[in-house]
């Protein structure tokens, strides 16, 4: 029984390692196609996955900013430092929450759509048809989606930063009775210049994770509609797990290793 359990865990670990390796290979092949990139398909993907995601990203991050402000208010009130709500919201949103929440929204919004689309193409032999015509699916399908999602992840994270802080501002001024000018002053003081680029680096990396996982799951889909459904579910679940793991790595890197400037 124990041996069987260890064997099953070992098998799962091997599958995971192989999957990560395959995604690495896909990333390398995608990078190899960068010189043959065309701007039109990338712009198309940016509109498809980025522009349409703006309302949902705004809404989610507005609520996140509000939740942080409400959650922290009680503790800060007990310390007599209620005005510091602005500082906590600003730091947590720009450093962690805006890129993370945007990535989670995009893994459902873009990752699922990409996995379903490429998965359907795979089971309908469209991918085989591309390859048989000496046309690279990586160049035609993976590269534009990856660049489109990565670039839009960065733009959406900037929007999310603003909306998250605005959510905190609404709660701070309307419910916690912090003066508007005080809140804005503390908020501006709390946000360091480097917090924004660090958030954008994370957003770009999360975008890569979302598209690599979704494309890989789509390209290996098999077994008709059931296979496409499985690929879509796997794409969302795996990308969320990897995004959170990557966020931990970034937190260690930015806060301990690259603590300055």
């Amino acid at each position: 029984m124990v041996f069987r359990l260890i064997g099953a865990m070992g098998h799962r670990a091997l599958v995971l390692v192989e999957e990560v390796g395959q995604m690495g290979l896909l990333a390398r092949r995608t990078a190899g196609q960068l010189t043959r990139m065309r701007s039109e398909p990338v712009a198309l993907q940016m509109i498809r996955f980025g522009i349409r995601a703006i309302p949902i990203v705004c809404l989610v991050n507005l609520f996140v900013g509000m939740i942080v402000a409400v959650s922290m208010s009680e503790i800060l009130h007990s310390f007599g430092a209620i005005s510091r709500t602005a500082q906590i919201v600003a730091v947590s949103v720009t450093r962690e929450l805006a890129p993370l929440m945007t990535a989670i929204v995009m893994s459902g919004f873009a990752g699922a759509a990409i996995a379903a689309e490429i998965g359907t193409m795979t089971v309908n032999e469209e991918i085989l048809a591309l390859e048989a015509s000496a046309l690279s699916p990586v160049r035609f399908l993976v590269l534009p989606r990856m660049l489109g999602v990565c670039l839009m992840m960065m733009c959406l994270t900037l929007v999310a930063d603003v909306l998250g802080m605005f959510g905190g501002y609404v709660v701070g001024t309307a419910m916690l009775e912090i003066g508007s000018s005080t809140y804005i002053a503390i908020n501006n003081e709390a946000v360091k210049f480097w917090d924004i680029p660090k958030g954008l680096v994370k957003a770009f990396a999360f975008g890569m994770i979302i598209t690599l996982v979704a494309c890989r799951q789509g390209l290996k889909a098999a077994g008709g509609a059931l296979g496409v459904g499985r690929a879509t579910t796997n794409a969302v679940v795996i990308s969320i797990v990897l995004i959170i793991a990557a966020n931990l790595c970034f937190a260690i890197l930015f806060n301990w290793t690259l603590a300055g400037p």
């Binding site: 193409m121 309908n124 032999e125 469209e126 048809a129 048989a132 015509s133 000496a134």
Partner: peptide, 20 residues
């Protein structure tokens, strides 16, 4: 080299496999 060979043949798939 394989792509050069592929340019010399065509294939008709069972479903047509047109790019949707």
């Amino acid at each position: 080299e394989m792509d050069d060979v592929r340019k010399r043949f065509g294939i008709l798939f069972q479903s047509g496999a047109l790019y949707s």
